[in-house]
Amino acid sequence: MNTVAIDIQQLTKEYDNGRGCRNVTISVGKGEAFGFLGPNGAGKSTLVKMLVGLTAPTSGRATLFGEPIGSLAAKQHVGYLPELYRYQEWLTGEEVVRLHSRLCGMDQSTIKPRIKQLLDQVGIGKRGIDRVKHYSKGMQQRLGMACALVNDPPILFLDEPSSALDPIGRSEVRELLKNLKNEGKTIFLNSHLLEEVESLCERIALLNNGQILRHGQVSQVLYTQTKWRFKVGGFTPEILPWLSETSGIAIKRYMNPSISSATSVLPVGQETVWLEATIDNEEQIGWLNTLIVNQGMTLYNVEPVKERLEEWFMDAVSGLSHRGEQ
């Protein structure tokens, strides 16, 4: 990992009602996009609030580019988009961004062009002269992005950045985030939109009941090493128990919707199917290949099972108790 942008060590926040988060340890590199996932009430927002200096930790420590969280020096590095926020409805969009730029101590000469550039970038454009009270939720979310970016911060904490947006808006925000990542910004993304996390983040962590349940590279998380799929031609149902028994590998037929039409035109007993095998090591893949070919079947394709993040998420939290929102 390159320079550490966010370093969290045993960070804990305990509330009287038992909520909060405990002993969270995460390190996020400069320029990295990190996805933070978890069910409602898991403590994700609490952690982010501690990192941006809104909430004091009970114990543990964290730094942003080496500066202790909550310090003015750390806040200089931060752009933050809170969840479920509203801006001053008596101000115009431009005035809100100007207010944030002044709070950041930006130079007066740079503020005006920066506001115009940002409002165009987030898709508000000329509606920046309208009062915020006339903005839709989506427009307010765009305005929030503009405010978060106003001081060109190296670290962005985004709490559900596109939850109020329509599909077009989400796509635009995703594109914007990708561009920001390409510019080298560190992104800490707290989102329920797992597709968003999957497309943007290199690493993720899953929080449940205030504790990190799983974490790792998205690429590792999404490829379940123990499951492989085999596209087999000339398959007969009787061969499946024999194949499992002979190889000693748990194999089942996998119903792939994409090949159902192809199957329907084949004669019964001579189908092209997908088989899914749960293996212990890669040598078993070769062994299974050999068995399939030796039985006169055609092996079209062999691939590891790539899980969608949603499946991974559901798998990780299923059966666990959640605190929920109450």
């Binding site: 609030k49 941006v52 200096g53 809104l54 003015l72 020096a73 806040k75 200089q76 931060v78 933050y80 988009l81 809170p82 969840e83 479920l84 926020y85 509203r86 801006y87 001053q88 207010l99 944030h100 709070l103 950041c104 101590g105 929030g144 405010c147 978060a148």
Partner: peptide, 14 residues
């Protein structure tokens, strides 16, 4: 309550 404060207090101001 409407998270307006949250976006402003993260700015570098005491």
């Amino acid at each position: 309550e409407i998270s307006m404060m949250q976006s402003m207090l993260t700015r570098p101001i005491q």
